[in-house]
Write a protein that binds this DNA or RNA. Sequence first.
DNA 1: GATGAATGAGTTTTCATTCAT
DNA 2: CATGAATGAAAACTCATTCAT
Lengths: 210, 210, 210, 210
Amino acid sequence: MSAAAGAVLDARGGQAARREHILDAAEACFVRNGFHRSTMQDLAREAGMSPGNIYRYFESKEAVVLGLADRERARGGALVERLEREGDRRGALLGIIERYFLAITRETAVLRVEIWSEANRNPDIAAMVVRSEEEARLWFTQTLAALAVSPACDPVALYGAMGPLMKGIIIERAILPDYDPAPSVAHLLGLIEAGLEGRLPAAHGNETDR
Amino acid sequence: MSAAAGAVLDARGGQAARREHILDAAEACFVRNGFHRSTMQDLAREAGMSPGNIYRYFESKEAVVLGLADRERARGGALVERLEREGDRRGALLGIIERYFLAITRETAVLRVEIWSEANRNPDIAAMVVRSEEEARLWFTQTLAALAVSPACDPVALYGAMGPLMKGIIIERAILPDYDPAPSVAHLLGLIEAGLEGRLPAAHGNETDR
Amino acid sequence: MSAAAGAVLDARGGQAARREHILDAAEACFVRNGFHRSTMQDLAREAGMSPGNIYRYFESKEAVVLGLADRERARGGALVERLEREGDRRGALLGIIERYFLAITRETAVLRVEIWSEANRNPDIAAMVVRSEEEARLWFTQTLAALAVSPACDPVALYGAMGPLMKGIIIERAILPDYDPAPSVAHLLGLIEAGLEGRLPAAHGNETDR
Amino acid sequence: MSAAAGAVLDARGGQAARREHILDAAEACFVRNGFHRSTMQDLAREAGMSPGNIYRYFESKEAVVLGLADRERARGGALVERLEREGDRRGALLGIIERYFLAITRETAVLRVEIWSEANRNPDIAAMVVRSEEEARLWFTQTLAALAVSPACDPVALYGAMGPLMKGIIIERAILPDYDPAPSVAHLLGLIEAGLEGRLPAAHGNETDR
DNA sequence: GATGAATGAGTTTTCATTCAT
DNA sequence: CATGAATGAAAACTCATTCAT
C-alpha cells in the first residue's frame, strides 16, 4: 500500500501481479457466492482496491472468469512441468492425481463446476474449457504411453475411461458435503495400473447396444 | 410426451399441467442460455404467456429452478418404477443406464450441470441435489445387492465406484461438443459386471498415501 | 350463496347490499394493512367473492375508498338522526361524542387517518372529506346554538375550538398504542359546557402575534 | 436553509449532505403526491440524480420515509435547543408553538399526516412516531413544570389536554384548504395559561360515563 | 351474473461500467 | 494511476384491471 511498494510493483511485472491479485480475490468470491452472485464491488472489496481499478486489468467481469479459467489451465501445466523436472513421469502422474483429485479442496471443486457451468453460456469460456481438456488429454495419453508396461496398453482408451471418473470425483467433491475422494482415487489408480498392463476391464458384450 | 397427450393436458389440465408447461419452457431457456441469462420475460415468451402469470404457478424464479430440479428427480424415480414394472431388476438397471447415460441428450446434461452449479449458492437446490443423490444411491445399492452373483459383491463400494463415473459422463456430454458416451458406458457396464461378481478392481496398494 | 338467496338479493336492494358487503371487507383490509398494502385480491378474499366481481359494484379501487369515506360520512348523519329521534338535542350531542370519541375503536381511528392521508393525493377523497367536515360543522354549530344557555355563547367559535380537539383524539387513538381518550373527552365536554355558558376560555392576550 | 448554506453543503458536504439533499427531494415529492404515488424515479428526478444513486444513501424507499420522519423529529429537538439557548423556557415554549402550529405550512402538515398514516403499516415508522411523541411529551411536561405559577398546576394533565389539540391543528391544516390556525393556537395558549395557573378547565361531572 | 386466469404496465432494486477528480 | 460516486439499463416481481367461460 505504501508508495514505495506500489512503485516497485509498477516497475516490474506490476501489471501481471495485479492481475494475479485480482484473480485471487475473484476466486475467493466466486467460490463463496458463485459468479453471478458476486458483484464487481465484491471483487474490489476482496482485492482491496476500487471497482474502477479492476477495469484497468480486465476488460469486463466476463474477462475475469475467463482469466480465472485460463489460470487454472496454466497452473495444471505448470504443476506438470515442475513434477516432471523433479522426478520421473510416473511420479508426475501420481503427483497430479494426488494434487488434483485426492487432495482437492471443496473450493477448487466448486470453482471448477462454476467454470463448467459458465461454459454453457459463454463461448469464450467454452473454448477455454475445450482447450484445457485437450491439453490434459494430450499430456495424459503421452504419459500413459510412455509408462505402458505392455504392448496391449491403449492409452487413448485408457484416458477415455479415466476422464469421466476424474471429472466425477470433482463433481462429488463439490456437491456432496461429506465426500471422501480416497476410494474413488484408489479406483482410478487401479484403473491406470490395469490399463498400463494392457488389461483394461473393457467393453465386453455391450448389452445396451441399439 | 406425445403431442396428443400434451394437447389434452393443456386443454383441461389445470394447475399441474400449467406448471409442467412452464417447466418445459424454463428447461428450454435454461439449456439455451443458462439460469442467470434467462429472464422471466424469456420464460414467459417461451411458454407463450405473460411474465406475471408465471408467478401464479411459481413463487419466484428460484422456485422455477427448484421445480425443475425436483421434476428431474421425480422423473428418475418414475422411470425406475416403470422399468421395474415392465421387467426384472436387471432390465431396470440397464434401462436406467441406457436412458440416463448412453442416450443422454446434451440438453439434459447441460441442465444437470446448471443445477449442480446452482446448488453452490442456493441452499434449497443443494438440499434437492443431496436428496436426489441419496435416492439414487439407495436404489442402486439395493438393486446391485439383489443382482449380486457372488457373496463377495460389495454394493456400497461398487456404487462408490460407479457414482463419479456416471457424473463424469454427464459432464463430458455437457462440455465436450463431440463426446460419445458409448465407451464410458461400456466401461460402466463392465464395472458393474465385475462388481456383481465380487471382483471389483479395487484399491490395491495405494501409491499416493500421505 | 344458494341460487335462491342470490335471486332474492338481486331482486331487491341486492346491488346496495353487495356494495355494503364489499365495503365491510375493504374496511377490514384497510385497517389491517392500509389502503396501499391491500390488494383487490385481498378485498375479494375477505369479501368471499372473485376479484372481477368487485368491479361490478365499484369502478376501481379508488372508488372503493371513496365509497368507504362516503359511508363513514353517511353513518355519522344517520347516527345523528337516530339519536335526535330517540331523545333531545343534548342527548344527541353527548351520544355522538360518546360514540365517536370516547368509545372510538382503534380500527375506526386508523381508517380515519387512512382517509385523511388519501385526501392528500385523491381530489375526490379530498372533496368528500371537506363535505364531511362541512356537514359536521353545520350540525354542531346548529346544535350548540340550540343548546346555548347564555347569549354570550358563540357556537362558531366554540366549534372552532372543538374541531381540532376532536380530530386530535382520533389521531392519538390511532398512533398511540395505549391511549385512553377519557381525559381528553372530559376536557372536550368541559369545553362545550363552558362554551354553551358563554365563558369560552379564549384568546386573551395573544403572545405569538406576528 | 439559506441558499448560501445549501451551496456550501452541496459543494463539499459528503454523505450527510447528500442524504439531506435526497430527503429534501423526497419531502417535495411526498407532499405533492404522497408516499405511495411517488416513485423512486420521481425522487431521483427531483433530486437531480439517477435512481440507482439514491440507494447509495438509503437502503430502500421505506428507509427514505423513515429518514424523513427521523429528520422531522430531530429538527424539533434542534429547534427546542436553539430556542432554549437563545432565551428563557417560556420563550422556547412560545417559539415552538409559533413555529409548529401557528406558522405551520400546509406542506409540513401534509407530511405529518403522511407519516402518521404510514405508521399504520410500517412498524419502523410506528416506532419512530412513538419515540417522537415520547420526546415531545417529556419536553413539554418538564417545561410546563418549570413554568408553573401555582402548586395546583398538573403538567401531565395539562399536556394530556394539549396533545390532541396540537395534533388536531395539524390535521385541519392538512385537510382544510382555507384553515387558519390562529384561533386554535390562541385557544391552546389560553389552555396553557390556565393550566400553569392550576385552573385547568377539567373533567367535572363526566356526563358520558358508562 | 360470477369467476379467476391472464395480462402487462409500472415499480423497486441491482450492478456492470464509466469518468471526473 | 487510482478512486468511488454516479449512471442507467435491465431484471424480478406486483397488482389493478379485463374478459373468456
